[in-house]
């Protein structure tokens, strides 16, 4: 009886393992292998690199925000990146957001901490109209909304290949023309977005050298944080919960053994 139970368990475990392998294959989104970078926020104890994410906000604000909204984010959220209230206020002091005045007329006023990040377009239709018919996706939870997550975002940002560097075979296979943007990691490779980042696209306040790789890595870390600002609390709580459950499970096992002592 014991043996059959074990067999059932083993077949169940094998089955589950193959099932999760199958699911993982799908999650990887085809055959394109993403660059794998050792992120600061990875692993059960990983945390966000605050200064990288702050630089990433600068990249977002100065480059990405021209087309991409982050409508789930509030300016007050930036304080969780280690900035003081005063620093955030000075970061946003030149941002004007739309509002209505007391007479119901549309006005622009300076952004407040309780405002959401200003969107570049008034609505999705306008965003699509300004971008060849396809609205640039909102970036609030983009790190969770793409298979591969941060690795995909980072890959996408550094994965552009200029037309003259493509092999004739690639040009033929993916039907690339001179005006197309070819990206190694974008599904289908032809992407509407022109290469957004380049060396020295921004000037970092903390003196970090703004290479393409640095910018891509920084903005990826900012977007990863934006997608899940509570990740650190989640992992912290998790360690405590699991330690507690282990202790309780140990005690329960001891109780169970002593209760059953005369029956086995």
């Amino acid at each position: 009886m014991r043996k059959s139970m074990k067999r059932l368990l083993v077949s169940g475990a094998l089955a589950l393992a193959s099932l999760s392998a199958g699911a993982a294959a799908i999650a990887a989104g085809g055959e394109i292998k993403l660059p794998s970078k050792q992120w600061h926020f990875q692993g059960p104890f990983g945390t966000y690199d605050r200064s990288a994410a702050q630089r990433g906000y600068q990249v977002y604000q100065e480059v990405c925000a021209a087309c991409h909204s982050m409508s789930l984010m509030y300016y007050r959220n930036l304080m969780a990146l280690g900035l003081t209230e005063g620093q955030v206020k000075s970061l946003i002091k030149d941002i004007q957001v739309p509002d209505l005045n007391d007479d119901g007329q549309p006005i622009e006023r300076p952004a407040k901490l309780s405002d959401r990040f200003k969107s570049p377009f008034p609505n999705a239709l306008a965003a699509a109209a300004a971008n060849n018919g396809k609205a640039p996706p909102d970036l609030s939870v983009i790190a969770k909304a793409r298979a591969g997550g941060p690795d995909y975002l980072y890959g996408l940002l550094i994965g552009y290949v200029p037309y003259d560097k493509l092999t004739p075979q690639q040009i033929k296979e993916f039907d690339v023309s001179k005006d197309d943007n070819f990206n190694k990691y974008f599904p289908g490779h032809k992407i509407g977005m022109a290469p957004p980042l380049a060396d020295d696209k921004v000037t970092y306040a903390d003196g970090t050298k703004a290479t393409l790789d640095q910018e891509a890595s920084d903005v990826t870390q900012f977007l990863a944080w934006a997608a899940e600002p509570h990740m650190e609390a989640r992992k912290r709580t998790g360690v405590r919960v699991i330690l507690f459950l282990l202790a309780l499970a140990g005690l329960m096992y001891a109780v169970k053994r002593s209760v059953w002592a005369d029956k086995h």
Binding site: G238, V239, V255
Partner: peptide, 21 residues
């Protein structure tokens, strides 16, 4: 009750692993 309690704990540990990590 005790045997179920122990089993529940083991199950919750695996569940917590997913929830938190």
């Amino acid at each position: 009750t005790m045997k179920d309690g122990f089993g529940v704990m083991i199950f919750l540990i695996i569940y917590a692993g997913f929830v938190f990590f």
